[in-house]
Amino acid sequence: MTPDSRRKTQDAGRTTPYNADLHIHTLLSPCGEIEMIPPLIVEAAKVAGLDVIAIADHNSCENAAAVMRAAEGSGIRVLPGMEVQSVEGIHLLCLFDEIEQAEALQEAVYGSLISLPGGAYRYSEEQFVVDWEGEFVKYCEKRIALPTSMDIDEVFERVAKIGGIMIPSHIDRQGTGIIDILGMIPETPDINGLEISRNITPDEARVRFPSVGNRPIFQNSDAHWLSAIGERHTILHMAHRNVSEIKLACRGVGGRRVENA
């Protein structure tokens, strides 16, 4: 073993606590405030002391690359992703390392967004695609506020195949959380982790929802405006800031873990 490769091996076994907020919307989401532009999101994340953030607009990742670029040199790692709405109506946080992976999921999502009679979708002009400086590029014409026709198992399989991680969003929320819709966390697929909303603590969630079991719980801001960024976060003890490390942290491998802040 060369000195260099030995050092790499040792590094991989050493974990660092990273402050993570893995659920942030931009102004692409119809419900996202207009101030949620890439440079301001990065600035707010810096002020909040975050080390890793994820961009997760509804059913789209069209602003994720811009935030990744805006974060270059900031020291903040940006994971591209999206919050997919399954046919059951469940919100599912889907996160990746590379924009190409997120775009591969986006292609499937765009192909399966449910249709409406012509003209009935009225959010298009609230769906802003911007560049890394926040300048207007175009409106997103897809019906991203609607559910897809993919069920939760299909979303899970697609995300896994592309190399991402699927975390059911705000599982305690009515109408869009997995527990309200499916009654309990299903035994399959093998879900790595779960996200709770700001309205509940991890301990409360485990008591209120026994089907959570010992799965790791993520707390994210689900920010739709700047001041919310980092209001909730999770401490991820990992060797690197990437999706496979998050998966390892969920499983508690090699000292990695998901810690609630």
């Binding site: 939760i152 109408g175 309200d180 499916l182 009654g183």
Partner: peptide, 24 residues
Amino acid sequence: DLLSDVLAKAKNGAIWATNQKHIN
């Protein structure tokens, strides 16, 4: 179609109609 609602409100011996198809 909300399984939590069914759990909370449906009675034993009920026939349940839904659009959900999930194993749950």
